[in-house]
Amino acid sequence: MATVSMTVNGKSVSADVEPRTLLVEFIRQNLHLTGTHVGCDTSQCGACVVHVDGRSVKSCTMLAMQADGAAVTTVEGLATNGKMHPIQKAFNEHHGLQCGFCTPGMLMSAIDLIKRHPNPSEETIRHELEGNICRCTGYQNIVKAVKAAAQEMGG
C-alpha cells in the first residue's frame, strides 16, 4: 500500500491505496465521485476525462500515484454553489447529450478545448473531440454546444 494525497474539486483527500490503483478507480471507489465514467479499456472513449492541474487527461490511463500532490477537477466540481458552468448549460440548451454516459468526459474535454481555442471553429471542435466517443448524438449538437459555451465563456 502507498499513501496518495491530492486536492479533488478543492478538497484535500488522502488514502492508502495499492500502487496499481488507477486515478479513475481512486475517484470512483475511494471518493465515491461516480460522475467520472469508464467506457473502454484502451484509453479511447474519453468517458473518464478529468482535469489534473488544469489539463484534461484520461483518468483510466493514469495511476492515482501519478496524481499525488495534484489538483484534480471532476465533473462534480464544475458547478459552483449550485450555479451551472456555461458548458453544462450549453449541453442542456443545445441537446448535446442523450444517455449521459459520455457527457462528463465530454464536458471536461470541452472546457480544456475552449481554454486552448477560445473561439474554436467547427472543424477545430470536431478534431479536438477526437478522444471522446459518443454513441448517441452523432456529435452535431455537441459541437453546437461547445461553440455556444465558448462564446458564453468570452471567446
Binding site: 461516480t34 460522475g35 465533473v75 451551472m84 442542456n92 449521459g100 457527457t103 462528463p104
Partner: peptide, 17 residues
C-alpha cells in the same frame, strides 16, 4: 429542454456501476 440533463451534466447520474 430536457429534465434529465441536470443530473447527467453534474455527474449525478446513477448508472449501475
Amino acid at each position: 429542454r430536457r429534465k434529465e440533463d441536470r443530473r447527467f451534466t453534474t455527474g449525478k447520474g446513477r448508472y449501475t456501476d
